[in-house]
């Protein structure tokens, strides 16, 4: 029981870290998209196929699902939204990333680069507010977990 309490507290502490990790992954993805657009004007569907094979994004299970849907002829925005819902990220982050997908490909190169910059700064702002929270929450949850576990041991004795 003591172990269960510690693990639960630890999980609660880590959920925010996972959110940070997924936002960092998407930030890296947007940076790569920006590079491909700026350097080669490569169409967005080709960019996604290329990124799927890159080491940096191997943990992002979202890309294989997205590309599979694109191969099946699904519209890019629909495929992006469905793939996002499959990996189950925070609803507020989902909304932000859906807005990014909606704005992709609809303007010239300069417009696209500025658009990428805008979403990168929105993600960065979100990360800046999450990082201190994550540290505090991990500390609190771990301490609380140990305290509750100790309490449980004392009660059982």
């Amino acid at each position: 029981m003591a172990i269960t309490v510690i693990l639960t507290a630890n999980y609660l502490g880590r959920s925010i870290s996972m959110r940070i990790k997924s936002l960092e992954d998407f930030s890296l993805l947007i940076r790569s998209v920006k590079t491909y657009i700026g350097f080669s004007k490569m169409p967005i569907t080709q960019i996604m196929r290329k990124l799927e094979n890159e080491q940096n994004f191997s943990s992002l299970g979202f890309l294989p699902s997205l590309n599979e849907k694109l191969d099946n002829g699904m519209d890019f925005y629909e495929a992006w939204c469905e793939s996002l819902s499959e990996i189950g990220i925070n609803p507020a982050d989902t909304e932000l990333l859906q807005a990014f997908a909606e704005s992709l490909g609809g303007s010239d190169v300069n417009g696209q680069l500025e658009n990428c910059d805008m979403f990168l700064s929105l993600i960065e702002t979100r990360l800046e507010s999450l990082r201190p929270k994550a540290e505090t929450r991990i500390k609190v949850c771990n301490s609380l977990g140990v305290l509750l576990a100790g309490l449980a041991v004392i009660i059982l004795i």
Partner: peptide, 13 residues
């Protein structure tokens, strides 16, 4: 047109 541009107007501008 959107599909023909591969959802990327910038690449066919």
């Amino acid at each position: 047109v959107k599909r023909a541009c591969d959802y990327s107007v910038y690449s066919h501008q």
